[in-house]
Design a protein around this nucleic acid. Structure first.
Lengths: 139, 139
DNA sequence: CTAAAACCTCTAGTCGCTAGAGCTACAAGA
DNA sequence: TCTTGTAGCTCTAGCGACTAGAGGTTTTAG
């Protein structure tokens, strides 16, 4: 049995975050000591590490919740799990595409000014001028 | 003079967002009609377009506030404006780097499973297994 | 003059935590 | 056994950048 502090140390997830995960139902309510302190079974360690790794991979809490729900149904086909991974990959691809566009515009903007006073600064001008943009960089 | 709805249409910024920008001091408080409705001068249109374009480029409200403050001091050197652009570029570069790592890991994870039941699904396993990762993909 | 559209303020919700206030429980040493 | 320090408890509020809605007032077109 772990106290919340021990679980926190073992997983590198903050105590307050563990309580938050409990509140939103990502980890189930643990047993309590006589003095009302949380006492976790070793299996919770695995669960928290799973959540932590998924978060590091950028998955939303909702997706993680779905994965956890799925993992409790070992006989179901695992297409849904694959879809979660693929959907997330697609999101990442789109984000990168967007950032690439921002990079192009910001490089352009950063290079336009060889002045040295605000009044003539082409960077500030360029920040305000959508028409000069090379791409449609809206989110 | 524009009403808030006209300004909203002209800039494609929602009415509630315009009020929000006023609240946080990004646009100055406009005159009011006899019945207490906002009446904007044409110059506000430019200001909102500037803000809107900066937001589309991913700048934070704070950075935009700094740019607006700077633009009121035309005789100052414009290094600070350049620095805002460059800092933002660097942030974007780092984000892309991070997304690239996530992409690598997620591709790896997506390709491991040729099973068809959750119980044997390698994707779910891989989601939980930090040690199998090729990169340090933490945020 | 009426009815609809637009406007007003204020509050609360989004996501994923995080910090702090004010209190109680537990473990180790004297 | 007592004390002290750390760790735990609940509850509330804050972050960023909006957005939605309730409940009321003003403007505008016909």
């Amino acid at each position: 049995m772990y106290s919340i502090g021990q679980l926190s140390k073992a997983t590198a997830i903050k105590v307050s975050t563990l309580r938050y995960y409990e509140e939103i139902g990502l980890i189930s309510k643990p047993d309590r000591s006589v003095g009302n302190q949380r006492r976790y079974e070793p299996s919770t360690l695995e669960r928290v590490n799973f959540i932590s790794h998924c978060r590091d991979l950028g998955l939303s809490i909702d997706s993680i919740r779905d994965l956890i729900t799925l993992s409790k149904m070992p006989d179901m086909p695992c297409i849904k799990a694959h879809k979660i991974a693929e959907d997330h990959l697609e999101k990442i691809r789109l984000k990168m595409l967007h950032l690439k566009k921002l990079q192009i515009e910001l490089k352009r903007i950063s290079e336009v000014c060889d002045q040295n006073s605000i009044g003539e600064c082409k960077v500030i001008e360029a920040f305000g001028d959508h028409d000069a943009c090379l791409t449609d960089h809206r989110p």
